[in-house]
């Protein structure tokens, strides 16, 4: 398999370049991450993040032939013979495929990603019907890999002002939770020209999400609640 990989080490490189690797695959190598690990065995300076290798920790989000995805659940068999691998677009590169995700997490933190409930906690669990719990499906599964936000033109232009699809998906996750009492505060927090309304429903996020989540729909729901609140 031929891999063309983005390389940049600020310690020694003037500018980034693409380096080609020819990787011999075994029968056990199913996923692109397996090929990257093989490439690193040839050249230990090749740098990327990885951990769970099953699509649940969100470490190995990269740009594969122009599309964001997780290396560990991208099947080699479904890729063309020649694969170009780059870091996620729009975030500063630290080295090779490793990007600085500070801005991404800052936006996630800005939506207050935790249940807010000021009632004294009951002795046992707070009750929630199965239907109410179902409202969290498609939201809580987010792995914070940043495939969506770094595929979003609005996030590219305004990463400091626009929350981005990942953060907004989580904003809705807490609005949708019947145990949360801070909906009004959450909506106030999003009501400005940028934080929520820079989403123009381009839907790159939906296309990029390796967990098949739909941030655009969640964003639409927040907008709906906001409109309802205004009238």
């Amino acid at each position: 398999m031929k891999l063309s990989i983005y390389r940049y080490d600020p310690d020694k490189d003037q500018k980034p370049y693409m380096k080609d690797y020819e990787v011999a695959l075994d029968a056990a190598d199913r996923m692109l991450l397996d090929a990257l690990v093989k490439a690193k065995a040839q050249d230990d300076s090749l740098s990327f993040r990885r951990s769970c290798r099953e699509g649940v920790c969100g470490s190995d989000a990269i740009n594969i032939n122009g599309k964001n995805g997780l290396a560990c659940v991208t099947k080699i068999a479904e890729l063309p013979d020649h694969v170009s691998v780059r870091p996620l677009p729009g975030l500063p590169v630290i080295r090779d495929l490793i990007v600085d995700m500070t801005q991404f997490f800052k936006q996630y933190h800005s939506i207050k990603p935790y249940v807010i409930n000021t009632d004294p906690p009951p002795e046992r669990e707070r009750l929630q019907s199965p239907q109410e719990r179902d409202e969290l499906n498609g939201l809580y599964e987010c792995i914070l890999c940043a495939c969506c936000s770094t595929a979003c033109p609005s996030f590219w232009w305004n990463p400091d002002k626009f929350v981005g699809p990942a953060g907004l998906l989580q904003a809705y996750r807490f609005i949708a939770d019947t145990r949360d009492q801070a909906t009004a505060e959450r909506l106030d927090n999003l009501e400005d020209p940028y934080r929520l309304f820079r989403c123009h429903s381009i839907m790159n996020c939906v296309d990029a999400c390796p967990k098949n989540l739909n941030p655009t729909r969640a964003i639409g729901k927040i907008k709906e609640i906001m409109v309802r609140r205004a009238v």
Binding site: Y114, L127, P130, E132, R133, D177
Partner: peptide, 19 residues
């Protein structure tokens, strides 16, 4: 486990609303 639920853990639910 109850504390974790209070923190917001999205446990699945029974018809009576319990974990």
């Amino acid at each position: 486990v109850v504390e974790l639920e209070h923190m917001g853990m999205p446990f699945d639910r029974l018809e009576n609303g319990k974990i």
